[in-house]
């Protein structure tokens, strides 16, 4: 198993606040990894640094052997925790945009997923509900044949039924040679799909382990362990 993502001493400060502190992390290919931690633990900051949207204060990131830049953007399929399309864009133009910019994007797959969701491609983004917008973005992100999927809180703002749909979409559509990193604090919903977990607390990596290994050694589910580790 080769390494797709490597972080060395990764630190991000916002003024006096250290959001991420000296994170060392190595993630192999073909894994589904849960980046788990309570609110404010640094999950989103870490993912944003991986995407080059935040500049690290210290440390290095390597994705597929490259520092964040144009090469890594070809490898990474990123789902942010917000709507990132122009609200006036039609859904079909969003698909067109991904087709134009990403060589590994499969528009047929995207249209099929949108059809299964009952989304009219002629609708503008503005007219969709929050949940629908998230699903459109997820459909586009998962229609790429990426090496690394970085999904920031994909199930954060949706109802339990939609969570199942989203998780099934991820499992059914990701590139099996690739790696999926899912950040969330909703462990119980996501536990069943994870191979590995990374616990983040106050910007530091508290623990990294495989889910099976964790269950065997601790005799607890990841959710139970999470509640124990992050007990208030």
């Amino acid at each position: 198993m080769s390494t797709i993502l490597e972080c060395r001493g990764l630190t991000k400060r916002f003024g006096q606040v250290e959001a991420v502190s000296g994170v060392d992390l190595s993630v192999g290919t073909g894994r589904i990894v849960g980046l788990l931690g309570p609110n404010g633990s640094g999950k989103t900051t870490l993912i944003k640094m991986m995407n080059g949207l935040l500049t690290p204060t210290f440390g290095e990131i390597s994705i597929g052997g490259y520092a964040p830049g144009i090469e890594t953007k070809r490898l990474v399929s990123y789902l942010p925790d917000r709507t990132y399309f122009d609200e006036n864009m039609k859904v079909k133009h969003c698909v067109g945009m991904f087709t134009d910019f990403y060589d590994d994007f499969n528009p047929t797959k995207a249209h099929d997923m949108l059809t299964s969701l009952g989304i009219d491609s002629d609708k503008t983004f503005r007219t969709l509900s929050k949940g629908m917008k998230e699903k459109v973005q997820l459909a586009l992100v998962m229609s790429r044949n990426a090496k690394l999927y970085l999904l920031d809180e994909p199930i954060g703002g949706v109802d339990p039924a939609a969570r199942d749909y989203i998780l099934n979409t991820i499992i059914r559509n990701y590139n099996e040679d690739g790696t999926v990193i899912i950040s969330t604090h909703l462990i119980a919903d996501i536990e069943k799909v994870l191979d590995d977990v990374v616990f983040l607390m106050a910007g530091r990596v508290e623990r990294t382990a495989s889910v099976d290994g964790l269950r065997e050694s601790e005799h607890k589910s990841v959710d139970e362990l999470f509640r124990e580790v992050f007990k208030c």
Partner: peptide, 17 residues
């Protein structure tokens, strides 16, 4: 909005310079 706002999350993750 397009580069420094939320839409920047899309624009800055496109494989372009």
């Amino acid at each position: 909005r397009n580069l420094l706002g939320d839409e920047g999350y899309l624009l800055f993750t496109l494989p372009t310079t």
